[in-house]
Structure formats: structure tokens, C-alpha cells
Design a protein around this nucleic acid. Structure first.
Lengths: 194, 194
DNA sequence: GACAAAAACGACCGGTCGTACTATTTTAGC
DNA sequence: GCTAAAATAGTACGACCGGTCGTTTTTGTC
């Protein structure tokens, strides 16, 4: 059975994930988080060993949500180019659908030069995602949708770049054409991969 | 004449820019910065009106350095495709050459959802750079190096994406092939633009 | 409904934050 | 070398930081 404590912890982590996407994993304070969730600071903190533990759990929560909302649904979609396209569209929706944007992107540029377990966990999650992208491209090659000499890892790199630029244009530059630009870039990537 | 105070302020800002690229503009503390520069907290703080003023000056300093080290030298290079290529290579060097990576990228993802003068200044600087990139591409079109129906702003978007992915692969994923991937992506971009 | 366990709370710790004010030292022009 | 100004240091502040502790409230089980 699901205890009350687990429910509360989930609620906290959901809120924390959103908050961290705005103020960062380091900028997130226990006090603010307690206020946001309507709990006392100590009551909230009792759910976590330390702030670092909280940060690790935020990353794990984001990973679960990402798999559930972005990755998993595409496994039920058509293999090959269709799946790669589905991954891209769902990835964009994932960014649009949450305040502060993609928590992985936000955290990545925050922690890239701050060694420690949190950075390690984040890098592992990002590496996993890059691998999953490359794998989907491999399948598209096997299916004959993409040309045989295409480098799946280079495709993943390019795809990630398009997403990161979308994030920047959308969030910082408030560019209304950001999504169009992203799709145009992705279409070019796909069409030069056939 | 250059007063002692101005010299000191420059020294502080240089150090602050590097530090902010690691811990962020918000995470940067006056106390740490004072320790790093060997000054007292109050002595250092006397150079700035507030922390926000310090942050604004850090961005302005970064902007000056970027123009000096990345942009300006390419104006003396050949117009057209050669200049666009030079911009890209210098941009990569700019990232590699400083601890913490490109301060603009770090700050962009930190501040994208935190309204205020600092975010505005950053967005303005980024917009300026995107415009400069697009302008260089326009010249390359005029010179006949790139095809006439190429969208310079789309080119700038794609180019920025390649850079952002490079930043991520290099800094977070510690990918040794990051530079190769970036150049491969850029070559593909250039060759499909002719 | 008693009762132990789980969960949440309020008060508090030492430390650091940004910032204000005053005092001291260093600089630059005469 | 004197002197006013500029630069730096010292001290203090209220607020908040992550974190601890003992107490109270809520929960689930018999």
C-alpha cells in the first residue's frame, strides 16, 4: 500500500522539480519549498537526508516523468523514422509543458562544472537519453528509412543541438518562431539522413 | 588616465566572470569573490551599487571580451563563407578557453525564467549575437557563397544549436569527440547552404 | 478505541548572505 | 610633503541558509 508519507514525498518532489527548473537545483531552498507546499520546513526536510539527497531525488523524479511522458509512448509508435519524429515532437512538448522548461537542460548548464554525485547522476541520465536517441536512429537505419552510412550518434548530437537552441530561443529570446525554426532544422536533419 | 580604482574593478570583474560561469550569476557571492581577489568584502562591494549592478557589469564585461576575442578578429578575415567559418571556430575556442565555459550560455539557462534587468541585458546581448551571425550569413549569400534562398536567421539558429550541443557534450558529458561532432554538424550545415 | 509508528511541527543552531555605515589607509595633484 | 579625494577595511545588521531536536499530531493496525 501507498503510505501517506510516500504520497507527500511525491507531492514535494513534483513541486521541487518545477521550482528547480526556475531557480536551479542549488538555488532551490528548503524554506521556499516548504512554503510552496504548505508544510513546515522541518516537516518537509524529514523526508530527505540532506539537500543533496533532495537534489538526487529531483533528478530521479524528472527521469521517471521523462520516460513516462516522452520516451515510453514512442515505443508504441511505428519503428524507424516515425519513432524518431515522435521522439522529437514529444521532446518539444515536454519542454513547452512545464514552467521553467526542461529540468535536465537547466540542471545540465548549472552543474556542468560542479563535480559531485548530483552532476554524476545528471550526466548518467543525459547519457542514457543520448543513447536512446542513437538507438532509435539505428533502428531507422535497419528499417531502411535512413541511409546505411549515417552515424546514429552524430544524428543524436545534431538533434540535441536543435532542441537546445529551441530551449534558448523559446525561453530567453521569447522568439515566437522558435518551434518553427526547430522543426525546420529537424526536417533538414531528417531529409539529409535518408 | 586609468585610476587605481578602475584597474581594481576590471580585475574583480574578470575574476567574477570566470566564477559566475561556474557557480552562476545568482550563486556568485560577494564574500567568495572578495576572498578570490584578496580583498575585504566591503572594500570590494564599494565598487558596485548592488549585487544586481555587479551582475549587469559581469554581462557587460563578457560582452566586451566576446566582441574583442570572437567577433572583431573575423572582420579582418575574408567576407562570406570564410568569415562564417572563422566565427564558428573562434566561438568554439571562446568556450574552450575559459573555466566554466561560455558565460552567456551558463547565464542564459540560469536566467531564462527569472525576469529582471539582468535577464533583459543578457537577452539583448544574445539577440545582438544572433543578428551578427545572420548578418555574416547574408554577406555570404551576397558574395554568392551560399544559395540565394537560404534563410540567414535559420542558419544562425542551426549554428547556435551546434554550439550549445558542443557545450553540453564537452562540459557535462566529457565527450572527447565533442569538437569533432560540432565540426561535422557545422560542415553539414555549410554544405547544405551552398 | 487503545496504541505504537509515522508524519509533521516549532524553536533553535552556527554560519553566510547582501548591504549599510564609519574608520583607516592609499593614491594623485600641488 | 601636504592635503583632499579615492580606495579599502572594519564592524554591524537583519534575513535566510541547511540542518537538528524534542514535541505534538496524525495514521494505520489490532
Amino acid at each position: 500500500m501507498v503510505t501517506k508519507g510516500e504520497e507527500t514525498r511525491e507531492r514535494i518532489l513534483d513541486r521541487a522539480m518545477a521550482l528547480a527548473a526556475v531557480v536551479g537545483l542549488e538555488g532551490l531552498s528548503i524554506g521556499d519549498l516548504a512554503r510552496e507546499t504548505g508544510m513546515s520546513k522541518s516537516g518537509l526536510f524529514a523526508h530527505f537526508e540532506s539537500k543533496e539527497d533532495l537534489q538526487l531525488r529531483i533528478i530521479e523524479t524528472a527521469r521517471e516523468r521523462f520516460i513516462r511522458d516522452v520516451f515510453a509512448p514512442t515505443l508504441r509508435a511505428s519503428r524507424g523514422e516515425g519513432r524518431v519524429r515522435a521522439l522529437f515532437e514529444r521532446w518539444l512538448s515536454w519542454e513547452r509543458g512545464r514552467v521553467g522548461g526542461c529540468p535536465f537542460v537547466e540542471a545540465s548548464y548549472e552543474l556542468d562544472d560542479r563535480p559531485g554525485p548530483v552532476r554524476d547522476a545528471l550526466a548518467a541520465a543525459q547519457g542514457e537519453w543520448v543513447n536512446a536517441l542513437a538507438k532509435a536512429v539505428e533502428i531507422a537505419i535497419d528499417e531502411g528509412h535512413f541511409r546505411g552510412d549515417l552515424d546514429p550518434r552524430q544524428f543524436a548530437y545534431d538533434m540535441y543541438g536543435i532542441f537546445l537552441a529551441y530551449h534558448l530561443y523559446h525561453r530567453l529570446l521569447d522568439d515566437e518562431e522558435a518551434a518553427d525554426r526547430a522543426r525546420a532544422a529537424f526536417d533538414r536533419l531528417v531529409s539529409t539522413s535518408r
